[in-house]
Design a protein around this nucleic acid. Structure first.
Lengths: 231, 231
DNA sequence: CCTAGGTTTGATGCATGCAAGAGATCGCCC
DNA sequence: GGGCGATCTCTTGCATGCATCAAACCTAGG
């Protein structure tokens, strides 16, 4: 029974995700199937040219990830997050990103710092050029660079799960940052990075949380505009 | 396409977890199968008197939860977390519990506050009586009451996933708080509760993070004692 | 026309069979 | 005796068939 002690995750190559699960996840996250849409196993099976079994397994995974809902003996449906869940996810997001900023600030000089610096410069260019598409991508990159820079794989893992549900939400409500928010957002990014460069974990965390909170409020305001009446 | 809009999770009863998955999870978390132990589908199938199919689905879930590892064409094994992952999980734990304390402090008078008060009093009695078993249960309850009291289901969900991996770790290393730590831990709990009662979210969060951090350090020290040599 | 009950349909849930691959075992050659 | 290779076994991965059940439909009664 000694050899099993060597079975540690670090000893093997990182698990490559199965292509089928990725395809199905992308199908949901892309919004190709709208929230509430049914996902019949038979249909997906012939869609991907496999049998129902691997489809079933993947759907169960997606249920575990909170992206679909399986109603026993009825069917699988694209999940519709409640308004409340969105708020909850934003609260979590604030905390996790704050933690990432905190941890990164403690790490000292790492490549991510330069990448974040370049990101902010590129964001400013995109903002000046009014390239909202490039800007959105850069915002995405900024947050993920900060995450991976935290050097905490479990944090990244949980963050990924969270963002899958929120990214989905963004698609549903088509939330986009308004030009007025862009400049403030960039300034907040810079404040976060400055605190990190100053090796100020608490300052970095607070700055990040303030930024995420401000973004969340902006997103919530967008929703108000798009869906003024909602119980 | 209007009727699908009514398919919101809040409209239905909370999904009851399948018994089989729970049984398998408990089997792993209880330590009945030690880390690295193989979990053959056939064996489990006849163990639970079902076919391989539902076993497979459950095992995939457990893999998603990070409790087992499936090596394609080889088999499923109880996962062994790395030392690094444990540290990462403790960092996450600190952040999530801090968030819970923060949110609870913002909620005002809720039943959880009285429950936490009672919990601390019971903890003190257990400490005086040297009842480490009861004390451990009370510590567990304190943290979970705080979590559920945050009124954030997504936070609770992520915390549950995290604790599944850490609870597992506790079993593996049989980490227990030493008597010397117990009194300090109770005082920290009280400090957290006091800040919550004062409606001081930031103070509550900081107190909670300090407490979790102290506990983590204590746990790490326990490990040092039990496993002095480890690369 | 509206409602209640039985029926039909369509989907899932699970059992089973077969093929493919990884690892161990055994034998052969050096 | 040691190293190497083929075989052999045990496992998973997937396809398929049947039973089960929820929901829609259709019909008969009020």
């Amino acid at each position: 029974m000694q050899e099993i002690a060597q079975l540690r995750p670090e000893d093997r190559a990182p698990k490559e995700e199965l292509p089928l699960l990725d395809k199905l996840r992308k199908l949901v996250l892309s919004g190709e199937y709208p929230p509430g849409a049914p996902l019949p196993e038979m249909f997906l099976a012939q869609q991907f040219e496999v049998s129902r079994t691997p489809i079933r397994e993947s759907l169960k995974q997606l249920e575990n990830e909170g992206l679909v809902e399986i109603r026993p003996k009825v069917g699988t449906f694209v999940r519709i997050p409640t308004r409340r869940e969105i708020v909850e996810l934003f609260q979590l997001k604030e905390s996790l990103e704050g933690l990432a900023a905190n941890l990164l600030a403690k790490r000292g000089p790492v490549p991510e710092l330069a990448e974040l610096t370049r990101n902010i410069e590129a964001s400013e260019r995109a903002e000046r050029n009014g390239d909202s598409r490039a800007y959105a991508d850069l915002v995405h990159d900024f947050h993920w660079t900060l995450m991976t820079g935290s050097d905490n794989s479990k944090l990244v893992e949980h963050y990924g799960r969270l963002m899958n549900q929120l990214a989905y939400h963004r698609i549903v409500l088509k939330t986009v940052e308004r030009p007025a928010r862009m400049r403030a957002s960039i300034a907040e990014h810079r404040a976060v990075l400055d605190a990190i460069l100053d090796k100020d974990p608490i300052g970095a965390e607070l700055a990040m949380r303030g930024h995420v909170n401000a973004s969340s409020l902006a997103a919530a305001r967008e929703e108000e505009v798009q869906e003024p009446t909602q119980g």
